[in-house]
Design a protein around this nucleic acid. Sequence first.
DNA 1: CGTAAGATAGTAATAATTTACTTACTTTTG
DNA 2: CAAAAGTAAGTAAATTATTACTATCTTACG
Lengths: 200, 200
Amino acid sequence: MSPHTNYMKAEDRRAATVDIVVALAAEKNPSEISTTDIAKKMGVTQGALFKHFPTKDAIVQAVIQWIADKLLSRIERAAQAETSPIAVIEAIFFAHIRFVSEYPGAPRMLFSELQRKQASVPKQIATTLLKSYSLRLQQLLENGKTQGLVRADLDTKAAAGLLIGMIQGLVMQSLLVDNIKLMHIEAPKVFAIYRHGIEA
Amino acid sequence: MSPHTNYMKAEDRRAATVDIVVALAAEKNPSEISTTDIAKKMGVTQGALFKHFPTKDAIVQAVIQWIADKLLSRIERAAQAETSPIAVIEAIFFAHIRFVSEYPGAPRMLFSELQRKQASVPKQIATTLLKSYSLRLQQLLENGKTQGLVRADLDTKAAAGLLIGMIQGLVMQSLLVDNIKLMHIEAPKVFAIYRHGIEA
DNA sequence: CGTAAGATAGTAATAATTTACTTACTTTTG
DNA sequence: CAAAAGTAAGTAAATTATTACTATCTTACG
């Protein structure tokens, strides 16, 4: 912990890089983040990054992986606290909202990668994240059906997709007005409508 | 209509440029579309573009304006065919779905511009589009309330935002699997849930 | 009606930046 | 002192925009 040095262990430097990129994505178009931007914000020269990552795409990949892991673990944790399937879905929804308000750069990175047409590794990770998220929700909705809490004729796949879309919509609108607080106000209102849509 | 010439009137060339960009956005990350890409696809040299647009940003601006105009006019047209507020909302929803399946590059361009942090003119246009879209929906939902078709306690602003988010979600998922047809299959299912959520 | 003049729309080449990545060398650390 | 982590400088490719010139179209007039 010497004060006047930039020297870090490789693992710490990689973790710091991921943090910096997520932070940068909150204040800049993710596709416009250059290696120079990252290095400058970290207080290191641009070339130093390539001591720890072979390519820029490897950096992006690490960032997306970090987001996927963090988001899924938060969701899993939120799910454990509740019992009724609908309460679990609600807990997941608000955990997701809290996550993106804590890391506004995270959804921006995800969107940016999902926009890419060609199948890159980062896009693959993002796709897998959304898929496992959706399956988790479908499972909960099916449980809700058997308990008579969810409409029997509900298309659970569509309902899972709708919840994820809802969050995307909220994020997008909060990005527009550049106000994360707005999301916390709007989220409960939107979820109330969703609940009406799926409940028996 | 001479066969062996590229010469076009300025207005036609500008319109052609917009078309090309929308087409390119369907097959490439919008933020990676270069002026060289555009020129090449149009069969013209790169420099020629700057005879008709002062900057690249002016091209993007024209594209976003085209999308906003086209989408709003489609929505307005769809709205006129129906009478009941909920039927109008449904018609608007499916008109929007048809629009994006016809021009898959359009939502990609919009997302891409909305991602930008700093307030550019294109982002301004996109924001205005979403706002006027949302207001139109809120108006319809209020009408639905007075006619007793829509739940009296519905938050119409949240409900309008939800519908737009739904479409964003559908678009994103169809982009993921690179299959526009999927959207046509999923859209009615998702709308059914939404209808349950707002109806009295 | 045909054509020269002038306006318009193009080309080819290039400048000025910016980008991801490399290389040769230096500093710090265990 | 050796390995790890950094710097400084540079390269090749790509990007937007400009410049000097050329081909094509339009139109007014002899």
